[in-house]
Design a binder for these strands. Structure first.
Lengths: 209, 209
DNA sequence: GTTTGATTAAAACGAACGTATGAATCCCGG
DNA sequence: CCGGGATTCATACGTTCGTTTTAATCAAAC
């Protein structure tokens, strides 16, 4: 089982470094050094740096997607017409859970998500699979039912805003220089702030055209 | 004036490439080639690649900041108690103006802003100056006055959400693979959607603690 | 026309990168 | 004990990077 252990440590190290420094800013040498493995281990276990990234992203995204899916199932089992705030919580909650669940890598997981979404590197855009699309489409349909007055383009705009806020806002703080303003919200508080913020935003009356 | 011309063309090329590929994904060679200049031109005119980036960012950010500042001045000259939606528009509007003003580089400018905000590279975090802090603090104070029930941490959270939505949401689309959903909002429509979305979000009642 | 300072050009440097290779080592069924 | 697949190791390869250097070119002042 020594092999699988090395594999996991490579994934852990890569997740942390990709989050901290981005894909291009992280060298295979830095990853293997942090993992306590040999330089060639990445090539052996994953084939290439890009495929290691894909494995890292999959490991992070999959539980989030599963939780989003399960949350929606739970909601729909309880009521056929969920409220907007409930949809927001079911969608955004898992993103915060993975971030705030307390283990040491949690803070950097949000950075990784952000990096994934914003990194212009081509390798960053090859992981998105049919599962992710399916989850997004299910939420899109439910939001459409809950907000029937919203035109599809505006709903689509708001869905992206939803993702932007959950993904971005803790990151922006965490990897910028110390801010002189009020201290940022953390953990559970941040989650509740986000639900409030986003539920109001999603529920706004349609922009008159 | 030939010298200054090379300088400008380097700035233009760097702005475009940094936006498209990120800082680390852009080589000095690619910049000088696109600018029609010699490889050593970057070193001569800017000292280093990092200082070139700083010059690019300054050139993009400064007019935005000036517009944000002027918009707030205009608002405060008209009324001593601006509404939240007006503050949102004055703050977010310039970010959309620079994006949608029609010239060819506009689409990539938003990507550059996004890259600046999210790139983990250390060089990306050295441009923020006292001017930017001043503008942000002025808006922070006005939002605090317009939303007196909001605790400072929650207000701070919302300010970051404000920036996240304006910066992120058009970019996420523009540099990902084609999406199967409804077509994204563009230009002026996107701006109005954002104002609606963000005004509602900023105006939400405080999260009960 | 020559000198002077500013700019551009061509070439090279050392370092870091991702990847590939072949030998060494480990682990376990026989 | 041993044989063989799985894994780790040290090392090297070829490329690309940012930067530097030195010479060539230009524009204008004297």
């Amino acid at each position: 089982m020594a092999s699988s252990d090395t594999r996991t440590q490579l994934l852990d190290a890569a997740e942390r470094l990709f989050a901290e420094r981005g894909y291009r800013g992280t060298s295979v040498r830095a990853i293997t050094e942090l993992a306590g493995a040999n330089l060639a281990a990445v090539g052996y276990h994953f084939g290439s740096k890009a495929q290691l990234l894909a494995a890292v992203v999959r490991r992070v995204i999959e539980p989030i997607n599963a939780a989003q899916c399960a949350g929606l199932d739970r909601l729909l089992a309880r009521t056929s017409q969920p409220r907007v705030a409930e949809l927001v919580e079911a969608f955004a909650g898992p993103l915060f859970d993975v971030i705030t669940e307390g283990d040491e890598s949690s803070a950097q997981t949000s950075q990784l998500i952000m990096t994934i979404l914003s990194d212009p590197a081509e390798e960053m855009r090859s992981w998105n699979g049919p599962v992710e699309d399916l989850v997004r489409d299910r939420y899109l349909a439910e939001f459409q039912r809950a907000l029937p007055d919203l035109s599809p383009p505006e709903l689509w705009f708001r869905m992206r805003g939803l993702l932007a806020v959950t993904a971005v806002d803790r990151v922006e703080i965490s990897h910028r220089r110390p801010v002189t303003g009020p201290s940022p919200a953390a953990g559970e508080e941040s989650r509740r702030f986000a639900i409030t913020f986003l539920a109001a935003a999603m529920s706004a009356p349609p922009t008159r055209t």
